[in-house]
Every structure is written in C-alpha cells, then in structure tokens.
Simulated assay, not measured.
Amino acid sequence: MTTPGPMTTPGPRDPTAGLGTGRPEQSAYMLRTAAMEAGRAYKEQLLGLLDLRPGHTALDAGCGPGTDLPALAERVGGTGWVIGVDRDAAMLAEARRRTAGLDRVELREGDLNALPVADGSVDRAKTDRVLMHVPDPAAVLARLHAAAAPGGLVGLVEPDWDTLVVDSEDLDTSRAFTRYTVTEVVRNATIGRSLARLAEQAGFTVETVCATTPVLRDAELADYTLGLGRNIERAAAAGYVTEARARRWFTGLAEGPFHASFTLVTVLARR
C-alpha cells in the first residue's frame, strides 16, 4: 500500500463541490488496482491454482486492459496460446498496446454470454471481478463450461461487497455506505459467496474455494478504489443517510488512521 495521504474534500468556498474523487477512467482504474499489494497477491494465487503449463490454451474472459495477459503468456510458453476476450473496444486497444510483441496472444471482441471461442477448446480459463457486472452470471458460467476442454480448469475471482467495512466512529453511516453499495452500485454485489454454488450448477466440479481480505489503509487510495466520497454523496441523495452526516463521515475518514476491507473469493473449478 502507499503512504496514507489526505483525501480531497471540498473547501468552504465551494459548498456545491462533490465529495472525493470523480469516477476514474476504467482502464486506468483496473491497472492501478491490479498493481496494489493486495491485487498482486490474489492474482498470483489464482495463477498458481490454475496450474498453467507450456502448450496450454488459456482464456482470459473479460480481460479488460490486458493486465494479466503477459503473465498468462509467460506460463503457457512458446507452444501455448492466450486468448483475451472483452466487449469494450477501448479496453482491447489498451490490451493490444500492453501485449505488443507477444505473438502467442490473441485478442477478440465479444460478449461473455457468447464467447468467441470454440467449445472444448481451452485448457485453462479465468474471470476476475467480471461476474459482478454481468446481467446473468449463470449464463456466463455455462458458456465457460462449454468452452473448457474436458479436465480443464477455470478460475473465478469475485468480491462480496456485503462484507465491506469502513472504520469510523459513525458506524451507522459506514453501514449505510455498504448497504448503498450492495443495493445500488454493484449489479451482483454478493456474487463472491455464490461462486461455488453457481459453478457447480453450471456443471463444474469445484476443487478449491478460498477467501482473502484486501485491506486498505490509505484513505485517498480507498476513495479512488471504493468511491467513498461519490457514493456516500449518492447514498445521501437516495435517502440512506442525511447529507450533513455523509459529509461529516467522509471528512472524518481522513483525520486519523484509516481502515477499509472486504472479502474476495477465489474458486477453482474443473470441467
């Protein structure tokens, strides 16, 4: 983690300014969070569980800006193949930039419900914080099951935002922030706890379920990654907490040692 620093809060001459940082550009956000200590740790854990070997065909479903593609390519070697799929053209453009020179990486534009890969064609596959956003996680898992070769491994990582805690003397407002996040901000906010069940329902055999707890101690970084300011402001507008209380809560987070954490669930499943 970086050294704790002050959060950006509106000054007295700007009473209409929003709280905290604005919504970050998605590609930059994904790259920054992946570079955090907690991000590196769970990604290394996932890669280890997948047991990637030279010659494997590996699929990164929802590859985003290509954060993990070089690591996958390194593990499958010169005889393997890596396929990155994302529906966002801007994300794929960044992924192409990051994988320039890796001739065993192929990027394909497509929706995860209709993965542009042949059935039974991938030895290893992963999704990382993707299912929490899709309309139908079960449908995506069914498509991943079809894409995997018999005996193939699929790694799934998702947070459970219902476990998000933010330390504050005003615990009721911290709880209101989590409740708003779960109810209004993230489409499938508790997908982490459901991963194993959904994977089994899709036809996989679940081999490993583990959980990690990323801890944020830098208030400014937490504001960037969790949207503390902008989301407590929206929570106030939606009636979860009063505006004055929301502002006091957010300002108070920067005044002392900071703590926020949540549960991140990793599931390894076999076709």
Score class of each variant (00 low, 15 high):
G11E: 08
D128S: 13
G48S: 09
V265K: 04
V182L: 08
D162H: 15
N231M: 09
L69Q: 00
T263Y: 07
E74Y: 06
D160Y: 02
T127H: 05
R247D: 12
L131C: 08
E255Y: 07
A28I: 04
L253Q: 14
L47D: 14
A146I: 07
Q45V: 08
A149E: 04
L107Y: 01
F262T: 14
G155T: 04
G203I: 05
A148R: 06
R97Q: 11
P116R: 03
T3H: 14
T9S: 12
R179M: 06
A93W: 01
D128V: 11
P116W: 02
A269D: 13
F250H: 12
L115E: 04
T181Y: 05
V82N: 00
L221Y: 14
S194L: 10
E169Q: 14
R32W: 05
G62S: 01
G203N: 12
D123Q: 08
G39C: 04
F258M: 12
G80N: 00
R247N: 15
E37Q: 10
R230Q: 11
C210Y: 09
L112T: 05
R32V: 13
T213D: 09
L49C: 07
G227R: 02
A95N: 00
A58V: 10
S261V: 07
T225G: 10
G18Y: 12
L69M: 02
